[in-house]
């Protein structure tokens, strides 16, 4: 991390030992227990990601992006090493980690990754079995959700004719910040037809795209485990902030 960056919008100001950002974030959560998380983001840890996590945080606060946090879902990996707790505390933003893996049905978000799950299959492999990913996630208390299912080649809809309807899918991403054309509509139609629930995520790869889509939860949550529980509770709503 480089030094001597300019403070953003007064976030170096401190109140009673806490940063303004932290204070505002906490007050915001007390006033409104609903939490909005961007469930699909990429940082420079992903091969095509160009955003530094610190800059995501700065952007969210400087632009008042209407989310409380985000999940880093790096491509074909899980980032055990990075610790974003200091950034999360400084900016009052929830920062969680997940993964985006690749299956015969396209790309799939995985929430609640732990070492047990990580050892079940090779995250770097292209063409994993979706049903196996779902089964292993259930075994280890995690959850898998196909993302941008309406996208050609890398979305689930494109593979239904060849592979049939997979077992075990409950949730798919129906609002994706990077969707083009009717991709979100195709995703929503599939979700409706097959009885899936929908989540939202920006799929941001650059700083200024974070929060374009997100998921609203009726309760507070602050850990990957709580995120999985909230998703399994099936009470959430995909939202779009795209202009």
């Amino acid at each position: 991390m480089r030094t001597a960056r300019r403070a953003v919008g007064g976030f170096d100001v401190r109140i009673g030992g806490r940063s303004v950002a932290t204070a505002l974030g906490n007050e915001s959560q007390k006033a409104n227990p609903k939490v909005i998380l961007d469930l699909h983001t990429h940082s420079i840890k992903s091969d095509d990601g160009r955003a530094k996590v610190q800059n995501y945080c700065q952007w969210i606060r400087a632009k008042s992006v209407p989310i409380d946090g985000f999940v880093l879902t790096e491509h074909r990996q899980f980032d055990f090493e990075s610790d974003y707790s200091e950034l999360a505390s400084k900016f009052g933003i929830t920062i969680l980690k997940g993964a985006e893996v690749e299956t015969e049905y396209g790309h799939v978000l995985v929430f609640g990754v732990n070492e047990g799950l990580y050892n079940e299959f090779d995250f770097t492999t292209i063409g994993l079995s979706l049903e196996n990913v779902i089964e292993k996630c259930e075994k280890h208390g995690a959850l898998a959700a196909p993302c941008h299912p309406g996208r050609p080649r890398v979305g689930m809809v494109a593979h239904l004719e060849e592979h049939g309807i997979p077992n075990g899918v409950r949730i798919v991403e129906t609002k994706n910040g990077g969707s083009r054309g009717d991709e979100d509509e195709v995703a929503a139609k599939m979700a409706e037809d097959l009885g899936y629930l929908g989540i939202g995520g920006s799929d941001s790869h650059i700083v200024s795209h974070i929060g374009r889509c997100a998921t609203r939860f009726p309760t507070t949550l602050a850990t990957e485990g709580e995120l999985v529980e909230a998703l399994k509770a099936e009470e959430f709503e995909a939202i779009s902030n795209k202009q």
Binding site: R2, T3, A4, R5, R6, R50, A51, K52, N55, Q58, W59, I206, V207, S208, H209
Partner: peptide, 15 residues
């Protein structure tokens, strides 16, 4: 859009 400023290096990062 400017998304990072490094005054030591005199550089900016732009989305």
């Amino acid at each position: 859009t400017v998304t990072d400023i490094d005054e030591d290096e005199g550089t900016v990062e732009i989305d």
